[in-house]
Nucleic acid binder design. Structure first.
Lengths: 352, 352
DNA sequence: CCACTTAATGACAGCGCTATCAGAGAGCGT
DNA sequence: ACGCTCTCTGATAGCGCTGTCATTAAGTGG
């Protein structure tokens, strides 16, 4: 009778252990370990001998055993609560790309940020699996209780595009204010002076920054934003429709509308269509985010592309680079990494 | 000087071990282990005593140690190579939902199905981390070399919507032929007799099944499909535009067009718009997949919704349920699990 | 009351690695 | 030749659990 852990005939498809390699190479398992971890103080010929044996036996160090014995788990966690599928997969791709360079793996942990037991779930998770680092995306990265739980567990973490608590941890983000500023400059350079704005969800950090960049660009050109042309939205298509409807019901109407994100821009376009306003002949439209669906609506909307995958890569890089060097000292207090965005010009803006 | 593994003052935020619990409860660690794993043969009062101690110490079993000592890793892997973000996140959500019910975690492994070293990457991964199961999605689930590598590693796996090698492993899928059949029946019931069809990528299994369902429904109503109204597409928006253009250039034109997926349907709609054909007044359109962008184009397209999350849940369920019961015996040869799809009626089909 | 099963518990040996430290050589100045 | 450092290597003790098996306590039948 074979027990569940019986690996069968050694070498015949079964996994080989560090012992097998040590025996074949005629050295101790510690030396094999040294070679596998690229530690110094191994004679080149010894190293070769070990490597040859390892190759011959198709030896792969067991990650679980390494984790248990050592101080690393080779696992990094990505925590998120974001309904946007494209954002999530881009994040995952970026993190995994960097993680693989170092033999790390990714554990994904979608979390309901409204769950009452969110913190206990996270604490419990971190106690169960010792992650070498976690990456937090909005809105989780702005929840103090979450940060506290992760800090309490002593796990290094990096936040992506945080709004609150600057400096509390390493962060990666793009300069949203600057992006909105440049988008507004773009509209102005196309001859627009009367520009409307659809604000995003007030609880989302980016909303304020985007508005701020908009206003700054306007004022810089001696244009005063008109309150009746600034409408509140909530980042959803429907809120865009509503905001557009309200905006186009005003006595005078702007020649361009800058929506805080693409979905609202689509909503604005739909509301325009309904009252016979043509885009971009009558009104120019710009969005923000460059969602994949952008290519589905006509005209394609001019927008800002956030470097999501690059942000993710950078976040993982901070985690893994620190892993490499540091061994207990307080981190060298890395400043936020700011990544470049791109203004994508398409057909929704007309030159006046 | 603190070593990296120094956990600091016991109990003070530090993780507690099974030893701490055993000591506090006044039992052996083995008994604690039994309680934590819900094993039988523990007196209720003992169980309570242990549970109390565990709660008091915020004890969480270390997953890594459990994996190494035991026969389970509490990790399941999701392998995919699919550009569709919504599909992937739905899959992940479904798998995670089921996994969490059993304290399992998800490791995601995007793979490039065209990479020359795909197999060695997979073998190496499976040797490094002992996964308790893996879930394969198209196109990976149809690659014999991949199946072989996983079988060689002795890891149980479930395939989602496979096309080839039926019966080689447990599978979950929806009945694509039936869905296409019902969609066609729907068009016929709306009074359409002249129906065009845009085929999908010939290397994707679903393409053939969808076409088959289409033809079956037609023939059942004594309608012979007209070859000049069947165009080849490749599941992309652009291929839809092209197919639509070719279709509308025919001498006579169908009253409805069934596209093998939504993106191509959008393309067909765009090509119709360009030559002044109105949807659905002049031509009705149906899609397949219900991609999220479907709500962005007007009119909203009638389509088939694939139960992606439910498929993922079912796949994980097969893996985890087997885990529970079986201990080495050959699986009871579960037949494929067929999950129900939904026909979503929207505004792109007109009753004749 | 005794052999005889069954339930409840514990002792202990690993799982496959890493960390620590001791030891064996090699090189070198005095 | 001696101690001394420095480089390379191995013996050994865990990491925090689970699996196996032995052991004790409790029940059962004759």
């Amino acid at each position: 009778m074979r027990t569940p852990r019986d690996r069968g005939v050694p070498g015949a498809g079964g996994t080989s252990t560090i012992n097998d390699v040590a025996r074949l190479a005629g050295v101790s398992i510690k030396t094999v370990s040294r070679v596998m971890n690229n530690e110094p103080n191994v004679r080149p010929e010894t190293r070769d001998k070990v490597q040859e044996a390892a190759t011959l036996l198709h030896y792969r160090p067991n990650l679980l055993a390494r984790s248990l014995a050592g101080s690393r788990s080779f696992l990094i966690g990505l925590f998120y609560d974001n309904p946007n599928a494209a954002y999530i997969t881009d994040m995952q791709r970026g993190v995994i790309t960097r993680a693989r360079e170092q033999g790390y793996h990714l554990l994904i942990e979608p979390q309901d940020s409204h769950a009452p037991d969110l913190v206990s779930k996270i604490s419990s998770l971190l106690a169960t699996i010792r992650l070498d680092g976690v990456i937090l995306t909005p809105p989780l990265c702005d929840m103090a209780v979450v940060l506290h739980a992760i800090e309490a567990a002593g796990v290094p973490y990096v936040r992506v595009s945080p709004f609150l608590n600057p400096g509390r941890s390493p962060c990666v983000r793009m300069d949203e204010t600057q992006a909105a500023y440049e988008m507004t400059r773009h509209l102005i350079s196309m001859g627009h002076k009367d520009i409307g704005f659809i604000r995003g969800h007030p609880e989302h950090g980016g909303s304020h920054q985007r508005y701020e960049g908009f206003v700054r660009a306007l004022r810089e050109s001696q244009i005063e934003p008109r309150p009746e042309w600034v409408k509140q939205g909530y980042f959803s298509y429907e809120s865009g429709v509503e905001a557009g409807r309200a905006l186009f019901a005003e006595k005078t109407r702007p020649t361009a509308v800058f929506s805080s994100n693409d979905y609202m821009a689509f909503g604005v376009m739909a509301s325009a269509q309904q009252v016979g306003i043509r885009i971009p002949e009558d009104v120019s439209i710009t969005g923000f985010d460059d969602v994949p669906g952008a290519m589905l609506v006509w005209p394609h909307v001019t927008t800002i592309r956030q470097p999501v995958e690059a942000l993710a890569y950078a976040a993982a890089d901070i985690l893994l680079t620190r892993q490499e060097s540091e061994e207990g000292e307080p981190a060298p207090q890395a400043p936020d990494r700011l990544l470049p965005f791109a203004l994508i010009e398409r057909q929704s803006v007309r030159r006046l």
